[in-house]
């Protein structure tokens, strides 16, 4: 129920931000469309604790900030690799084990790996992720350990609590 009202609040905020017209008639139509979307989400049964993560938003935001810094660092490496006259790439397939429990935390971890340029998660089976990396030396298990720990702390403790 809390998730349902959270969804309505988020959808209303999105509508108000995107519309820019605040006459009464338009507002009514907007409210109707928000209710229709929420009703469809309930009918699709996609509204559970993991698909509507309104809990612990601060933790997710701090994780996001840390991830942005990592993305900038990784971007620099890949840009240099793109522009170097001689290709010196050393691609490799690496298996990474995650300690995340819930689906949402695993998705966060795998998506973070994909989002940082230079590493892409290829398959995800159970708690093992197959990662393709542009440089083998950039993809040692200890590199991913911190990301794994942080995504577990940001998401997992809130989902299972």
């Amino acid at each position: 129920m809390l998730n349902f009202f959270g969804l309505i609040v988020v959808l209303s905020g999105l509508w108000l931000g995107l519309s820019g017209h605040y006459q009464p008639l338009i507002m009514w139509l907007g409210g109707l469309s928000v209710l229709l979307s929420a009703f469809l989400a309930v009918r699709l049964e996609t509204l559970d604790r993991e698909s509507a993560p309104f809990f612990g938003l601060p933790g997710i935001l701090t994780y996001w900030v840390w991830l942005m810094i990592e993305i900038v660092k990784a971007n620099w490496i890949v840009i240099k690799a793109c522009l170097r006259a001689e290709l010196d790439i050393n691609p490799a397939l690496v298996k990474v084990k995650t300690s995340c429990e819930s689906d949402l935390a695993r998705t966060t971890f795998a998506n973070s790996i994909t989002l940082t340029p230079g590493t892409v998660s290829v398959t995800l089976e159970g708690d093992k992720i197959l990662v393709h990396a542009l440089y083998e030396e950039e993809a040692q298990p200890e590199v991913f350990a911190e990301m794994d720990r942080r995504s577990k702390r940001a998401v997992d403790s809130r989902v299972t609590a």
């Binding site: 900038v72 971007n75 890949v78 840009i79 790439i89 989002l115 340029p117 892409v120 393709h132």
Partner: peptide, 14 residues
């Protein structure tokens, strides 16, 4: 293909 994916993700992020 897999290495191209990395180059494309530069566009997607930065």
């Amino acid at each position: 293909f897999y290495t191209r994916l990395h180059a494309a993700s530069v566009t997607d992020t930065s």
